[in-house]
């Protein structure tokens, strides 16, 4: 059985907000390591990989691996019934036909209990090898979100060029063109806002902005984001949390 108590229930609410528009149904794979999820969007262009490590919960107990098949829209509706400061406890027994959720307020005088029906999901699990990327950009997650939103005014896609000087996001469309360049600035006073680049070689890649904008729904989960890129392989956009991560993979756009 699974029992996982999350002191900051808001985290789970934010995680759901970050994935529910990209994927509709997914298995939460629970093991003694924690709760993991991997799912592709319907078009098989983007993939979400989520890990909530066991040490992010207190207590965490999972004596047998369980796959909890969840409709994410339904779960997100139930989570809207939890207060932002509530402690959330997830429970499922080994038959895994329902997920029990308990929300306790901080004064511990209001306890709400919900049960969500689970479903069998035959999900395709992809093996993603450890990859050394040609360019890794670490930057403010809020800045990344702003750039994607701004450039979406111009085009459906963005060209990302990374050199040792900086990273340039450019878009061209019917109404004109636009570009935002962030110079590498590891010495700025505000570490949170620094743009850092690790580069093996320059890269220039095109990606769909619609998906990138979708990924930025994870912005409330982390102040930093990393973009890992190599020619002709999927982009990895990673938001690291205190006890886990949310990773998005996006296939590059290629010439016809």
């Amino acid at each position: 059985m699974l029992e996982a108590r999350l002191q900051t229930g808001a985290l789970l609410k934010k995680v759901l907000e970050a994935i529910k528009e990209l994927i509709t149904d997914a298995n939460f794979d629970c093991s003694d390591n924690g709760i993991a999820l991997q799912a592709m969007d319907n078009s098989h262009v983007a993939l979400v990989a989520l890990l909530l490590r066991h040490d992010g919960f207190e207590p965490y107990r999972c004596d047998r691996s369980l796959a909890l098949g969840v409709n994410l829209v339904s779960l997100s509706k139930v989570l809207r019934c939890a207060g932002n400061d509530d402690i959330i406890t997830l429970k499922a027994d080994d038959t895994a036909d329902v997920l029990s959720l308990t929300f306790e307020n901080t004064d511990n005088d209001r306890i709400s209990e919900y049960e969500l029906k689970l479903m069998d999901i035959d999900s395709e699990h992809l093996g993603i090898p450890d990859t050394t990327y040609e360019a890794v950009v670490q930057m403010s997650s809020a800045e990344f979100a702003r750039i994607c939103k701004d450039l979406q005014v111009l085009s459906d896609s963005v060209q990302i060029d990374v050199t040792k000087e900086g990273v340039k996001f450019g878009a061209k469309g019917e109404l004109g063109s636009g570009a935002v360049t962030l110079k590498q600035n590891g010495n700025v006073d505000k570490e949170e806002e620094a743009t850092l680049i690790e580069l093996q070689q320059n890269v220039s890649l095109n990606f769909s902005l619609k998906y990138l904008v979708n990924f930025t729904k994870a912005t409330p989960l982390a102040s930093r984001v990393s973009l890992s890129m190599s020619s002709e392989v999927p982009l990895l956009v990673e938001y690291k949390m205190e006890a886990g991560y949310i990773r998005y993979y996006l296939a590059p756009k290629i010439g016809e």
């Binding site: 098989h44 262009v45 993939l47 992809l126 993603i128 993979y249 296939a251 010439g255």
Partner: peptide, 14 residues
């Protein structure tokens, strides 16, 4: 125009 790749081309089934 560019076309969008499919992730399955890059990553095989686990």
């Amino acid at each position: 125009a560019a076309v969008q790749d499919n992730l399955r081309i890059f990553y095989g089934r686990d």
